[in-house]
């Protein structure tokens, strides 16, 4: 009995497991990957996990797609899924696309100026710049290193 309750819990919360795993994977990719494009991909996974959380949240047991029949004769017995989270996520997807596009265009500019899109190489270049600043203007504390 206990086993089946556990099974129910695991399967019944499948969307939450998926959300958690995808979210943490995305966040890990953002943090752990040195390639700027891969970071953006990680960010996309992270955002997609949230989209899935919202979309699965709108589901109603036995509910069908929330589209009224053309003749508008609505059968009160029919259950519809909640369309609101889906609509919200349409907006969030647009925001996500804009973020990705902006991130990628920034990467193009970074590539033009630094000649690389690897974070380690950029950090080296920035350390050299910071050292030049320090040499010209005196030692400073803090910064991006």
């Amino acid at each position: 009995m206990g086993d089946s309750a556990t099974f129910e819990f695991v399967v019944g919360h499948a969307n939450y497991w998926l959300f958690s795993v995808l979210m943490m994977t995305g966040l890990y990719v953002v943090v752990a990957r040195g390639n700027l494009v891969k970071k953006i991909v990680g960010l996309n996974m992270f955002q997609t996990s949230v989209f899935m959380l919202y979309i699965s949240m709108g589901r109603v047991d036995g509910g069908t797609a929330p589209i009224f029949p053309v003749d508008m004769e609505i059968d009160p017995a029919v259950i519809y899924s909640n369309p609101l989270p889906h609509v919200l996520i349409l907006t969030a997807i647009v925001v996500g696309i804009a973020t990705t596009a902006l991130g990628l265009s920034l990467i193009i500019r970074i590539r033009e100026e630094f000649g690389t899109i690897e974070e380690d190489d950029i950090l080296v270049a920035e350390r050299i710049l910071a050292a030049e600043d320090d040499k010209a203007h005196g030692e400073a504390m803090g910064g991006r290193t």
Partner: peptide, 9 residues
Amino acid sequence: LTAAYDYLI
């Protein structure tokens, strides 16, 4: 550029 990228992430 890198400041903007960091800020974006």
